[in-house]
Design a protein around this nucleic acid. Structure first.
Length: 510
RNA sequence: CGGGACGUAGCGCAGUUUGGUAGCGCGCUUGGUUCGGGACCAAGAGGUCGCGGGUUCAAAUCCCGCCGUCCCGACCA
């Protein structure tokens, strides 16, 4: 039997290629003709829509509302906050003209249409939003102001990679204004909690919550909180950030309010965001050599039904039963796909839907009709060391009486959701190590690496030194409750030997 | 912007050294046989060989210029 050469991908050997392959075979996205930009295909976008809904529910539940602000930011707005402007200066797309003109049959930019002030395509919206908030906030009664925006932003990155880093990407950015520092800090932490909850319970990706070192902070922030996940190559991925902005943006846009004592004060700000990068995280955390693996809570299709038949008589019977099962599962609130395409071998359909990450497949043929049973196939099972692919394939498959099968799908999806999280957590823990010396550190990253829990008291420059020597960076300074038992307590910095109050996470990162 | 590689059918590539009818695999179309883990047979459709110039009887192939893409570095949700 002929096997197409894309059947097996080298997950461990060539991770970047494997990653692109999963995206391609999973029909998620492709590079566009536009430099550094990505086309998100319907299946990929459906995942994003599910993420949006889950996140949006959480934003609403914590008192936020959605709004929309302009794509264009006048250059003078962007430069109001000095650090912010400096941080984004090197990656801005700038609009300078507003008209084209035909000269000698060639359409060119009309030099006479030059804008008085260039417009920057938003790399993030703090500046334009705070310029707007100035008019919305007068009194402490106007606070807190809790607004989120779903939009696209542009950052002119030198090198791009589907989902992880593209010149244009989709995201949400929350921008809140508060009367006190305490409230703003509480909001910063609350939204980090929302992200962590979403990552772990919906994406099934375990994350470490912590904060960035000053060098890794968002441009213009006083503090940047983050969640960090570990991908299957041991590299860290920043999956979301929540910034405490203090009064920086309020001051640069002059946003003040009268407090209860009748005194004028600058407001306190936060901003927080996650992007379509999360789809990249999903791929790199769960997928395998057969393609995409999706946590059921984000799968656009929960169940695919593959009818199997030879004769026309069989076809009629099988399709009738398949239609009934389709309707019954749909009535349960599941999203179901009946793949009744003809002229494609059932096996080819199995591979196709597996590559797209559909969690459960139902095969239904004449034998099932006879026996009154269904063939259920899970997209994955937890690995047993040393088992062959054949054995694993057998374990994925079960033949169950019809009624039992239909009632069992929702619980099965819940189980798979749990198992994915558990598997990812065990993988991360296995690739995490408490490390005390540079020799150990070097060896750890030579052998594949992961999360190194080390004591650190270095400067920004010394972080750079570690990056040069080992390609590692400080991923985050974890919250106290995120530190595993064996990593707790004070110690001495791995590089400088200076005392350090707690361990931090160092890793290679995307 | 510095270093490297590559532009040939929708996708992946061979052909370039040594100039001589534009090829292969996948995919696509039609017909038939198949159909419980990637089917097979037969017949088809699909190309200004990245762009422009030069050498030559003759250029995908040699020469010059340009454009574009990817990889490695600095930047990064």
């Amino acid at each position: 039997m002929a096997t197409p050469d894309n059947a097996v991908t080298p997950r461990a050997q060539d991770y970047p290629q494997w990653y692109l392959d999963v995206i391609k075979r999973g029909d998620l996205a492709e590079n566009s003709a536009v430099r550094g930009c990505m086309v998100i295909k319907p299946h990929g976008y459906a995942i994003w829509e599910k993420m949006q809904r889950e996140l949006d529910d959480r934003f609403k539940a914590t008192g936020h509302v959605n709004a929309y602000f302009p794509l264009f930011i006048p250059l003078s707005f962007l430069t109001r906050e000095e650090q912010h402007a400096a941080g984004f200066a090197k990656e801005c797309a700038v609009v300078t003209h507003h008209r084209l003109k035909s000269i000698d049959g060639k359409v060119v930019v009309d030099p006479d249409s030059k804008l008085e002030e260039p417009l920057v395509i938003r790399p993030t919206s703090e500046t334009i939003i705070w310029d707007t908030y100035k008019n919305w906030i007068q009194s402490y009664r106007d606070l807190p102001l809790l607004i989120n925006q779903w939009c696209n932003v542009v950052r002119w990155e030198m090198r791009t990679r589907l989902f992880l880093r593209t010149a244009e990407f989709l995201w949400q950015e929350g921008h809140t204004a508060h009367a006190t520092e305490a409230e703003a800090l509480e909001e910063t932490h609350r939204m980090l909690g929302v992200y962590a909850d979403f990552a772990e319970n919906i994406m099934a990706v375990p994350v470490i919550r912590g904060k960035k070192t000053p060098g890794e902070r968002f441009a213009g922030a006083l503090d940047t909180l983050c969640i960090e996940g570990m991908m299957q190559d041991g590299k860290a991925l920043q999956m979301g950030t929540s910034h405490y902005l203090g009064q920086n943006f309020a001051k640069s846009s002059d946003v003040t309010f009268l407090n209860k004592d009748g005194k004028r004060e600058h407001v306190y700000a936060t901003s927080w965001g996650v992007s379509t990068r999360l789809i990249g995280a999903l791929i790199m955390t769960h997928s395998d050599d057969n393609g995409l693996v999706l946590p059921p809570k984000l799968a656009p299709i929960h169940v695919v039904i593959i009818p199997i038949f030879k004769s026309d008589a069989e076809k009629a019977k099988v399709l009738e039963e398949a239609g009934k099962i389709f309707a019954e599962l749909k009535a349960q609130g599941l999203t179901v796909k009946l793949d009744d395409r003809e002229g494609i071998m059932p096996g080819a359909k199995y591979y196709e839907w597996e590559a797209k990450g559909v969690p459960v497949r139902i095969e239904i043929g004449p034998k099932d009709l006879e026996k009154g049973s269904l063939c259920l196939v899970r997209r994955f099972v937890l690995e047993i060391p040393g088992e062959t692919e054949q054995d694993q394939r057998k374990r994925k498959k079960s033949f169950v009486p019809r009624a039992e099968a239909l009632a069992g799908i929702k619980p099965l999806l819940d189980t798979m959701q749990r198992e994915l999280f558990e598997r990812a957590r065990q993988f991360r823990d296995k690739r995490s190590r408490v490390i005390n010396t540079l020799e150990e550190f070097e060896k750890f990253f030579k052998d594949g690496g992961g999360f190194a829990w080390v004591h650190w008291a270095g400067t920004h420059e010394q972080e750079d030194e570690m990056a040069k020597r080992f390609e590692t960076t400080v991923r985050c300074i974890p919250q106290a409750d995120q530190i595993p038992a064996e990593a707790q307590g004070p110690g001495l910095c791995i590089l400088t030997g200076q005392p350090s109050a707690q361990r931090i996470v160092m890793a290679r990162a995307y």
